[in-house]
């Protein structure tokens, strides 16, 4: 795992950071708060997660609006609501991840592990399989 040093990581170091065997030395004038670049990077990651959630929500609305008849009765609404629910949970997971990262950055610890990416991928894959089955049903009914 990539180790992030929250303090003292800056252009003032006399050598590249990776050439230090131990913890990154803290310059004597280091402020008592983490490097703002870590905070902003973490904030952008939160916003990226929120946009991923929004894209899933938009996909759900699009399914309900533009594919209202999907295989079985309620098929379209079920797929649409699943996508919206996955989007909502993705946004929540992104917020939880942001909070965990903030704690780690504040304390100068490495960022905690997260299973959000595989979880969202698995959920979307499951929805795609269901959509495939529904389209198959739709085709066979003709």
């Amino acid at each position: 795992m990539h180790r992030l040093a929250a303090r003292g990581d800056g252009p003032d170091l006399p050598f590249p950071r990776h050439s230090y065997p131990g913890p990154v030395p803290v310059p004597p004038d280091a402020p008592d708060h983490p490097d703002y670049r870590f905070t902003l990077a973490n904030e952008r990651t939160l916003l990226a997660w929120l946009r991923t959630g929004l894209a899933l929500v938009a996909g759900g609305v699009a399914v309900a609006t533009y594919a209202p008849d999907l295989g079985v009765r309620w098929g379209s609404a079920a797929v649409a609501l699943s996508l919206v629910a996955i989007g909502l949970l993705t946004a929540l997971a992104g917020y939880r991840r942001w909070r965990a990262n903030e704690g780690a950055i504040e304390a100068g610890r490495p960022l905690p592990a997260s299973r959000t990416v595989p979880a969202v991928a698995a959920a979307v894959a499951a929805v795609v399989v269901v959509v495939g089955v529904l389209v198959g049903v739709e085709v066979l009914q003709r």
Partner: peptide
């Protein structure tokens, strides 16, 4: 320090409300 938990919380709530609005519109 540039940390602002309030802004992060506010934008998260806005996205959650958007998802809720979408669910209402579908149902």
């Amino acid at each position: 320090a540039v940390r602002d938990p309030w802004a992060a919380r506010a934008v998260t709530v806005a996205v959650l409300l958007t998802a809720a609005a979408a669910a209402v519109s579908i149902v």
